[in-house]
């Protein structure tokens, strides 16, 4: 059940929800094992809640490893299909890739009407990558962390989309694109006008700015937190199910896993569609 037999239930849960964080601990910090960090601080792997002390300049190695690994898998697989793509009879892989590409393309075409070469590939990347990251959730929760513990890695969270940094990293990237396209396609004047002159008319500029500002900022926050929340909750339930005796786990874990197939696909799809819609709004002039 638990990776470390001596752990309590809450310890087990916390262990499963802790990232493998690499960062700098400040001088004089008392570590989890009672040792004191020496002069000038030290770069190390965080144990327990040490990651909180590391501040912003730390990195979740497991999230980065799995998300980049899955991203590389995605581009490798799709690149492989793309190099062999023929207009003749498609093979299995090409068929698979084409059906996804067409699915994404149809979705983009239905909600994005401006001309932009980047949006459809971006949507494809988001859909497949987020799906793959979510898919890690279906690997039984103990397998890989247990293996990692045996190899001397103290923490390993294999589902990158249960890390708020990952989801917010993506949604803030989308936000950057929203701002970029708003400014370049609409122009600065119109973008500012959109933020200040509606919905209450030009005499209520502060109120307009507040409403539209919240509206604008809510986009990346809701986009990132929606994915994070869904995946985190799903993961949490898998962990709770894993606390049951081993012979009873399948009664709950199998239905939840089957249901989760729907959730992970849906979340990937929602992330993609919302990105396309936001970028479409950024391109639309009034």
């Amino acid at each position: 059940m638990a990776a470390e037999g001596a752990l309590t239930t809450s310890g087990y849960i916390i262990h499963h929800l802790t990232n493998l964080t690499f960062g700098k601990l400040p001088e004089g910090f008392v570590r989890y094992d009672g040792s004191v960090v020496g002069e000038g601080g030290t770069w190390t792997i965080a144990h327990g809640n040490e990651a909180a002390t590391m501040g912003f300049w730390a990195i979740n190695l497991d999230s980065m490893l799995f998300s980049v690994g899955l991203g590389l898998f995605f581009i490798w697989l799709f690149r492989k299909a793309a190099t062999k793509a023929t207009a003749g009879v498609p093979g299995g892989l090409q068929n698979f890739v084409e059906s996804i590409v067409e699915f994404v393309d149809d979705n983009v075409k239905s909600s994005f009407h401006a001309r932009n070469q980047f949006v459809a590939p971006l949507a494809l990347t988001i859909f497949v990558w987020v799906f793959l990251m979510n898919l890690m959730d279906l690997i039984p929760v103990d397998w890989i962390p247990y293996l990692a513990t045996q190899l001397g890695v103290p923490y390993l969270k294999i589902v990158p989309s249960t890390d708020v940094n990952v989801t917010m990293g993506m949604s803030l990237s989308v936000f950057a694109l929203i701002l970029y396209y708003s400014l370049t396609v609409k122009g600065v004047g119109e973008f500012i006008g959109e933020l200040t002159l509606q919905p209450l008319g030009k005499y209520m500029i502060p109120a307009n700015l507040f409403l539209e500002g919240v509206n604008l900022l809510a986009k990346p926050v809701s986009l990132g937190l929606r994915l994070f929340g869904n995946m985190y909750a799903g993961e949490m339930i898998f962990i709770l199910i894993a606390l049951l005796p081993f012979w009873a786990q399948w009664i709950l874990s199998v239905p939840w896993a089957i249901f989760h197939i729907l959730v992970i696909t849906l979340q990937a799809f929602i992330f993609m569609v919302l990105t396309v819609v936001y970028l479409s709004m950024a391109h639309e002039s009034h």
């Binding site: 912003f56 990195i59 980065m64 940094n165 990952v166 917010m168 990293g169």
Partner: peptide, 16 residues
Amino acid sequence: NINATIIGQAIAFFFF
């Protein structure tokens, strides 16, 4: 914890 992973993820995202 919010940390630099957010930046790494954004870079990876744009690259992919």
